[in-house]
Write a protein that binds this DNA or RNA. Structure first.
Lengths: 259, 259
DNA sequence: CTCACCTAGTCCTCTAGACAAGTTCACCGT
DNA sequence: ACGGTGAACTTGTCTAGAGGACTAGGTGAG
């Protein structure tokens, strides 16, 4: 039986935190195993002699830490995969180890022969305001949207969505599911837009419910987001690629410019 | 005056979420600017005609998303570092644009006259296993640990911790709080280690309680972590820099190598 | 046997109020 | 002019209760 301990109301730390502390310790020390159910609110209220909201506050703290998940009507359970706390060495590292060419071109090529891609969706849509701004689209210009999900070891790890202006994609295989050798970057270059420059914005946030589901992660784990914009030699943006990935690490390398 | 809208109790979405949605939109669209104070609980209670806990629940949601920070006795404020796209505002943006000298030297110089650094701590410690491995340290070799916290608009946004092998730091100002012109990279080069190559690992995770406190973020918001290792011309690792950053975006740029 | 229904147990949301504690500022006495 | 006090405002925490919604399991009707 789980030792729920007691709370001390004379001490500075508020009761709801003390309760959270006790439960957190049980989880961290394995006395509450992954998947196991926590004592119900009613039990905790009774045990500690506090009001409902106080217990809920404690549980909420653990939820926001990603240690537990609540299931309406069932109970609160210890998360089976604890959130990432340390840098993990990662297969993405190798992507950026390619020599003599852009790491991302290499990545695109890799995607071309589709190892570990299990879903591809290609549509023609009206551009969102954000995409329109990034691609400097004319009013009402549409975009080709290519969305794909990457797997590693059979588990989904990344969802990438590319937006290419329809004007560039026209007459190419970009709007086809199979883009041919070299992937869409090769097709963009075929269309006369030589790639010259990229910007990337890296951030992290909590996943949306859809993303959580698609990436098979718990609600307490963050996702990395990477928005890459590709420019041609004229400085025209030709592609925006929005990547959401499980927040394990990836690696960038670069050299100090020669003096 | 801020348009607080109204909530619809007939709809499926619970009131506290509707309130959070309204406030979130104001923040995202810039009608509530970074640093600006949100309407107080009392105002929101009055306006929406709900109980205090309902309003607090809404605010709590925004806090856990990292959009706002509450300050006891003062109010709730929009976080000062919103997910920005402006390249210039970010230190990382310029790294890859420097000409003729190491971007990191420039960065270190900038840090030298300490704009927006509010805490510096320098210690001599035994290296952790991870740091020892990255720096290829000999057994029992110690490291100089330099930890600093960066501010933007008066709010903490980043904690950076550098580890330099004692053998390299010896006889330099690296172990001093004030490292002199050019910062530690200049001192490392003074010591005969010309910087040549960097690797960076980027990841995201949930912050530790200490980090949450130091960066003043909500418990549901992730942090970006960046571990940079600097190598000299011999390929010897000379510094490991571990950066934990509020998970708003940062920007990387690079060009396609000439063919 | 199958299916609809009921029920106990769970978490979700909300109400209405209370006291505590931190911040700010005007006011008053010195 | 200066310093202290306190009022007014803010958020933080807690209580006691209510109805709702969801899940799982049992029960009875068909």
């Amino acid at each position: 039986m789980l030792d729920l301990g007691t709370i001390d109301r004379s001490v500075d730390r508020p009761p709801y935190r003390q309760i959270a502390d006790i439960l957190r310790q049980h989880i961290e020390r394995g006395r509450l195993a992954p998947g196991e159910q926590l004592p119900s609110e009613a039990v905790l209220i009774e045990h500690y002699g506090v009001a409902r909201m106080t217990v809920r506050e404690a549980i909420k703290e653990l939820r926001s830490e990603g240690l537990v998940v609540a299931q309406h009507g069932k109970g609160v359970f210890v998360r089976s995969a604890p959130p990432v706390r340390r840098l993990a060495s990662d297969r993405f590292a190798r992507r950026h180890r390619q020599e003599g060419k852009s790491a991302f071109l290499a990545e695109a090529e890799a995607a071309g022969h589709v190892p570990g891609v299990d879903q591809i969706r290609v549509t023609n849509e009206a551009a969102s305001a954000e995409v329109a701004e990034r691609l400097k689209l004319k009013p009402r210009e549409r975009v080709i949207v290519r969305s794909r999900r990457y797997l590693a070891d059979g588990r989904p790890v990344e969802i990438a969505t590319s937006y290419i202006p329809e004007s560039i994609a026209k007459g190419t295989a970009i709007a086809e599911v199979n883009t041919g050798p070299g992937g869409i970057y090769a097709r963009i270059e075929d269309a006369g837009h030589e790639l010259a420059h990229f910007t990337e914005e890296v951030s992290a946030r909590m996943p949306s419910p859809d993303e959580r589901k698609a990436l098979e992660i718990g609600s307490g784990a963050p996702v990395l987001t990477l928005v890459r914009t590709a420019f041609d030699t004229n400085g025209t943006p030709v592609e925006v690629c929005d990547t959401v990935k499980v927040a394990t690490s990836f690696v960038l390398e670069y050299d100090v410019p020669a003096k």
